[in-house]
Write a protein that binds this DNA or RNA. Structure first.
Length: 728
DNA sequence: GTCGGACCAGTTTTT
DNA sequence: CTGGTCCGAC
């Protein structure tokens, strides 16, 4: 290959030393790049691919780049093609699921699938499991379908098939196994594949077919993985399998930004690489190009409270910037009002600042409501991230289910969804009878329906309705139309359009709009020319695998999102609200073994989103789930050194640290041996009622505690005389 | 088949 | 307090 000095220049030009060291490492070397927030990790990954292809003669064709989200994959593709200014054909860039899916489409037969296998999302998966739990007459209180879904996915993530499970130790295991087995059989019969299954199948496919494995190992001499801290056990195994002895791995990740432990991600996989891959080199990217010094100092100080880190310290060559502003609100309304005011004054203060540069981050979605209210009041445009996505809407999923059924009549999940939707006189009773036939003879619902008609198994009326449904689908399936025309036909001939049109409500109008949008989407849909799938098949897979977040984000609006959603993004002005114990760290998260540390990482992610200015707010009282809370400020707030913080004072001058103190320091200082920590304890007082301890001082007879009483406000009490009763 | 009321649960979410 | 789901009545 021609080595173009100009391009090489571009590849290494604007890199700092650590980045360059990573990008230009020998091709034969495994690399682990520990990349802090805002240190240019995606950049390093892209430039590495370019370097390999331009300097090391590892053609793009021999590289495999893996990400977690489609967004990241698309970004990588785009940036790479503009860097190299050449076609990227041959390069595999994609998500774990996208790539595994591709393998399955090519080798469907070896993977023991049918050619028309379909992907189901977690929603469909849950439906199916519900159905199975019901059919087995299992108590869904003792075995909640949601939980069973978790168990099944966890099995799959550990590469465990039903037949691998040894004799169950207890009833719970046994029931889980039973459900898993049924679920698996059902999916296999209906040719359905869930998310975890895509990965597991692809893994088993390669494992069971040595020639295939050899082929892909030879083809992909270099594998590059983004956000490695988010890999789960199966993904890790997948990478290892594909690497073999010869393959070389290049990985970027940040153990401090591992926030998906609760769904199986194992940040330890980063450490694991160091033992599993001989000679892997670790490079740290610690220079940050995003935030001010103050913000980075706060983030560094916070994350230091975590154990078991690979360890790194962010720094910047830029300004120290402004202190982090702390706002202590009276209640959530006050907090929201404050945030909105600050957004307004911040944007007005300087030309060139606009709303989309402002983000409000929160731990739980429930907190967005009041913010929305206030923003609406002030007529400030905003956008809330994460809600139902387009392809998850009911009417869209209905249409897609029809399309699925056209491709594969044995797709029971699709059959059940649309057989009576819109209503066409096939009620629960008829469906139950079909199910019985299907179960009894090992047929799909479609086959059962055909059979029922042939044998006139039940009431004429139902049979004729079923017959009409079958011929509707058959006629549609017989069409040899373009994808968009077909979709149009499905929407109209199925009666969906009519169904929604009859109703005059606003939501129904929206549904019609969505259906039109779906047709538009099919019109502009372009199938990848070298996919082995038909247009329809490709479209269906894409809608599940890439739910397409990217809706008109071009408008200038304040960004509202959860901390999880904010990962990977950056904003000049950031608000972190609801910084309160129980809420953040979240009460539920503390139940998990490493819960607190993950919450702290989440906070670290939040802080490091801010480029110029960060506000953190917490309130004295907050209504949540209908009850009034009087939360203490989050411990995370107290883990940030005071000199980096500046309290925003409005009318009421209250000093957070006078009022609450750094309780950890306080407890350490005032509690030589014997005084227990009361802070956080809920108590009952004979006169003042219920409250929560917010501070304490002294020991023995001098011990005093401050209690925030729910009815009577804050009081200092001498512990010895207060007659307090501890509440759970 | 649709509507209304009772009941219940309630972190985080991409694929 | 909310939103979703389930069940019984028309």
């Amino acid at each position: 290959m021609d080595k173009n000095p100009e391009i090489i220049e571009q590849i290494i030009n604007d890199l700092n030393d650590a980045q360059r060291q990573a990008v230009c490492a020998p091709a034969a070397q495994h690399q682990l790049v520990l990349a802090g927030a805002g240190s240019g990790k995606t950049r390093v990954l892209i430039h590495r691919i370019a370097w390999l292809s331009q300097v090391e003669d590892v053609s793009l064709y021999k590289q495999l780049a893996v990400t977690f989200t489609n967004k990241a994959a698309a970004e990588m593709r785009q940036r790479l093609s503009s860097l190299l200014n050449l076609s990227l054909s041959g390069l595999w860039v994609g998500t774990f699921h996208g790539l595994a899916h591709r393998l399955l489409r090519i080798h469907w037969h070896e993977a023991q699938l049918t050619q028309h296998f379909q992907i189901i999302d977690s929603d469909d998966q849950l439906r199916l499991i519900r159905r199975i739990v019901k059919d087995l007459q299992i108590d869904d209180k003792a075995y909640p379908p949601k939980q069973m879904q978790g168990e099944i996915n966890r099995y799959k993530e550990r590469c465990i098939r039903p037949q691998h499970i040894p004799a169950p130790q207890n009833t719970y295991e046994q029931i889980c196994l039973e459900i898993y087995q049924r679920y698996h059989n059902h999916c296999q019969r209906s040719s359905l594949v869930d998310f975890a299954e895509i990965l597991l199948r692809a893994y088993e496919l390669l494992e069971a077919h040595p020639p295939l494995l050899t082929h892909y190992r030879q083809r992909f001499s270099h594998i590059l993985v983004d956000e490695f801290q988010d890999t789960n056990q199966l993904q890790y195994a997948w990478i290892q399998l594909l690497l073999g002895e010869q393959g070389r791995l290049f990985v970027v990740g940040d153990d401090d930004q591992s926030i998906y432990g609760w769904r199986g991600a194992q940040a330890d996989n980063l450490q694991k690489l160091q033992t599993d891959l001989k000679g892997i080199e670790l490079i740290r990217l610690e220079q940050n190009y995003r935030s001010t010094g103050m913000i980075l100092d706060a983030a560094n100080a916070l994350i230091k409270h975590n154990d078991k880190r690979l360890g790194k310290q962010l720094w910047t060559a830029g300004d120290k910037g402004q202190a982090i502003q702390i706002y202590h609100g009276v209640n959530a309304e006050d907090e929201a009002r404050f945030i909105v005011e600050r957004i307004q004054s911040w944007t007005e203060k300087q030309a060139g600042r606009d709303y989309q540069q402002c983000a409000v981050l929160y731990r739980t979605n429930a907190l967005s409501r009041l913010l929305e209210e206030k923003l609406l009041q002030k007529q400030i445009p905003y956008r809330v991230y994460g809600g139902l996505r387009f392809f998850e809407r009911m009417e869209i999923k209905d249409t897609l289910a029809y399309l699925r059924l056209l491709l594969n009549k044995d797709d029971d999940s699709a059959f059940e969804r649309v057989v009576n939707h819109p209503p066409r006189g096939i009620g629960g009773r008829s469906i139950e009878q079909l199910r019985a036939i299907a179960r009894g003879q090992g047929l799909s619902l479609w086959q059962a329906a055909e059979q029922a008609i042939k044998t006139e198994a039940f009431a004429k009326r139902s049979l004729s309705a079923i017959g009409k449904f079958l011929s509707l689908i058959q006629n549609l399936a017989g069409e040899n139309e373009e994808l968009s025309a077909l979709t149009h036909k499905v929407i109209h001939q199925s009666g969906l359009w009519q169904h929604f049109k009859q109703k005059k409500q606003e939501t129904e109008q929206m549904r019609l709009d969505n259906l039109e949008e779906l047709i538009l989407a099919t019109e502009s849909y372009e199938t990848d020319p070298d996919t082995p799938m038909s247009d329809l098949q490709a479209f269906l897979s894409d809608t599940v695998l890439d739910a397409g977040e990217g809706q008109s984000s071009s408008d200038n609006a304040v960004q509202l999102m959860t901390l999880h959603n904010a990962k990977g993004l950056e904003f000049p002005l950031v608000f972190l609200c609801g910084m309160e114990e129980e809420l953040f760290p979240h009460r539920m998260a503390l139940q998990a073994p490493q819960g607190l540390e993950e919450e702290r990482r989440l906070c670290y992610v939040g802080i490091t989103r801010a480029m110029q200015q960060l506000y953190i707010s917490h309130v004295e009282s907050r209504r949540l789930h209908g009850n009034q809370l009087y939360p203490r400020p989050s411990r995370f707030l107290l883990e940030i050194p005071q000199e980096l913080l500046e309290e925003v004072r409005l009318q009421t001058p209250v000093n957070l640290y006078q009022q609450y103190g750094n309780y950890q320091a306080k407890v350490a200082k005032d509690t030589p041996n014997n005084l227990e920590n009361w802070i956080g304890q809920r108590v009952q007082h004979p006169r003042f009622g219920e409250g929560m301890v917010t501070d304490q001082e002294g020991a023995g007879k001098a011990a005093r505690i401050q209690v925030m009483f729910y009815q009577n406000g804050a009081k200092w009490l001498v512990l010895e005389y207060a007659q307090l009763e501890k509440l759970p």
